[in-house]
Design a protein around this nucleic acid. Structure first.
Lengths: 205, 205
DNA sequence: TAGATTGTTAATCGATTAACAATC
DNA sequence: TAGATTGTTAATCGATTAACAATC
């Protein structure tokens, strides 16, 4: 099997395509060309075709891409055709907000467990999930086949929480804490620090 | 004046440097080399030197960079030496969490106004800011010299909110809504859709 | 002075865009 | 058939990394 190296940039764009294609699907649009996608998403049509061609031949010359078919294909590339269970660590303001994201994640991705270090929060509920102590993390990950962890704790606690996640077998982390996590090579970390986004935005003012 | 074109990648890394340098500063570290920074942040030392060299000669050969000095320089590059006022639209779960970020933004960046479309929320308080109606947005932006807007509303409302922001003179937007905003060229949009981050993370599992 | 480390040039690497034959 | 649009190759562009003279 041919396994061409897929760049990070390509992978970041796939969910963008998926999101827009889902809109088209909801509007019962049958087919779409790379030209139309490019206009809607502010991307070069050649780039879109090349991105998709990394994974197969999904379009038809002279016609374009069938929306429903492409949605399924991208979902499968992103593994969203499988059940992907997610856990959240941190039941503060941000954690509370994130726990409500299940509606957006849709389909097969779901936040199914929440943890916090604060004894006073254990047992309480957010978004109908019961807050568990960190001591139960490893076991829950195994039992419920959790594959992604979201870190929404203060910076000071983030590294040790991340270490716990890795120890439990998690290999994908979305980190909201304002700190650089040191992780083994096989663990993928996506940073989502609001402060950093605002700071880089300021440059362009 | 020499104005070399600064790439987006460089600008995204500046806040990363700043965050770590602030840690060093808090630990009373005097100087740091690109080598040390690179190890801590998982970046190539040459890249760090090159990034910084875009803006001036901040280091000393044989010595490295003076931490306090570099902090000030990067702050000034990012315009964080000026007062930067930020507004937030959307007082739902996410908006509530974001309104508590002022502690992290520090210094001169501050969320100073919150808006929502829901009449029932007008007048209520989150993080000691009173929720205002969108009708007051334009005036408030002028009065309080607000320069950045954060969008934390549902996807359906995001484009029209963004249009309001642009109409009010905002040129920097941090968009949490899961939708592609169509904006004039001079408006800078940073996307922060949690769903997309999780979806792209799934690819690597 | 000797060792360390910058700023910068040159080399490499990778990503984006243009162009076009294939074909629906 | 004629027009449209893909998949893909080649050309371009830009970003990262290596290497080193300058110098603290």
């Amino acid at each position: 099997m041919k396994v061409p190296k897929i760049s990070e940039a390509v992978v970041k764009r796939l969910p963008v395509y998926l999101r827009y294609l889902n809109n088209l699907k909801a509007m019962n649009v049958r087919t779409v060309s790379s030209q139309q996608l490019g206009e809607a998403l502010d991307l070069n049509p050649a780039q879109i075709r090349k991105d998709l061609a990394c994974f197969g031949e999904f379009g038809r010359k002279g016609i374009g891409y069938e929306v429903n078919y492409l949605v399924e294909k991208i979902k499968s590339i992103l593994k969203l055709d499988q059940q992907i269970n997610v856990l959240l660590v941190g039941a503060g303001n941000l954690g509370h907000a994130i726990s409500n994201y299940n509606a957006y994640l849709k389909d097969n991705m779901k936040i199914i467990a929440v943890f916090d270090a604060d004894p006073n929060k254990i047992g309480k509920k957010i978004a109908n999930l019961t807050i568990q102590p960190l001591s139960e993390l490893k076991e829950t990950v195994k039992e419920k086949s959790i594959r992604i962890g979201i870190i929404a704790v203060p910076a000071e606690a983030a590294q040790s929480v991340a270490d716990c996640l890795v120890d439990a077998g998690i290999t994908g982390i979305l980190n909201f804490a304002p700190t650089n996590l040191r992780m083994p090579e096989d663990v993928r970390v996506h940073d989502a620090d609001v402060t950093m986004e605002l700071h880089s935005l300021a440059y362009y003012l």
